[in-house]
């Protein structure tokens, strides 16, 4: 397959942005449906973080890598892993231990101004408008990791709401010091990556803030698609697009069968804008 240095697909872009923030020697966990997360970890390992350690939450395989993105729970990962752990042992450091993981990367049905996460329901829990899949390890990973990333494959007002309908993963709760006041360890969301930009949280009040916008994205477009007022810094940064070297490494050594491009294309409304910027 030719390695094109042309446009990054949305999934590739998100993997590159996440990988850049990972450091060598860190410990991470990925869930079942985690193609972008696996790609990000393995990309970081190929580039600047060769001793990053990641484990498949359900499957127990560590640092599985063969240049092909497979579902993280699949048995095929065993043959290319460094270790295989059993879940009843792993729960000690997933569900109880404080700060074992440096980071986790989580998706959501909804997130809010303070980076809380909801994958349980839209509307009232007893009679929801939309019943989601549930919490699984999100509560523990948001609550106990040093930091977490929120990765959203869509950015609109149904996903970015003033307050989530159900907190299944604690971000900064009500902002300020409310997270640690509640007895949770230091931590919380560090970055939010979406098809429109990268967002962080203001250090004191913990409200979500624009960090950088992807090429071709305007502040108005982000505001129109966000259900609360984002903090905006004085000078707006542009997201540094994936470099040719990052994309080459991703496509040659991490995702050689093109899973991310196939499964995570840009939303159609965004494609025209992004295809200009990421060459």
């Amino acid at each position: 397959m030719p390695i094109a240095t042309s446009d990054a697909a949305m999934g590739e872009m998100l993997a590159v942005l996440l990988a850049r923030d990972m450091a060598d020697g860190e410990r991470a966990i990925v869930g079942t449906n985690s193609d972008i997360q696996v790609a990000a970890c393995n990309l970081a390992r190929q580039r600047h973080a060769p001793h990053l350690w990641w484990v498949s939450g359900p499957g127990g395989m560590t640092n599985a890598s063969e240049g092909i993105i497979r579902p993280a729970a699949d048995a095929e990962n065993i043959a290319v892993a460094e270790a295989v752990m059993d879940l009843p042992q792993m729960i000690d450091f997933i569900d109880w231990q404080v700060h074992f993981f440096d980071f986790a990367i989580l998706g959501a049905l909804q997130t809010d101004r303070f980076g809380n996460i909801n994958t349980v329901c839209i509307g009232d829990h007893a009679r929801p408008k939309l019943r989601g899949p549930g919490t699984v390890g999100i509560s523990a990973l948001c609550g106990l990791s040093h930091r977490f990333y929120i990765m959203m494959t869509r950015h609109d007002r149904s996903a970015f709401v003033p307050k989530v309908d159900f907190v299944c993963g604690a971000g900064f709760l009500d902002g300020g010091t409310s997270r640690t006041d509640r007895g949770l360890p230091e931590g919380g969301p560090k970055l939010v990556v979406t098809p429109l930009g990268v967002f962080d949280f203001e250090p004191a009040n913990k409200a979500m803030r624009v960090k950088s916008l992807h090429d071709g994205v305007t502040l108005d477009e982000v505001r129109d698609n966000t259900g609360f007022d984002l903090l905006v810094p004085e000078t707006l940064q542009h997201t540094v697009p994936p470099t040719a070297e990052e994309l080459f490494t991703l496509r040659r050594l991490v995702d050689s069968t093109g899973v991310l491009a196939r499964k995570f294309p840009w939303p159609t409304s965004r494609h025209a804008a992004n295809s200009k910027g990421v060459r």
Partner: peptide, 19 residues
């Protein structure tokens, strides 16, 4: 079934079922 109220849900998380 949940949206229509046909079944009752005991909401749990990973630590809840593990513990």
């Amino acid at each position: 079934a949940v949206q229509s109220g046909a079944i009752k849900v005991l909401e749990m998380d990973g630590p809840g079922i593990a513990g």
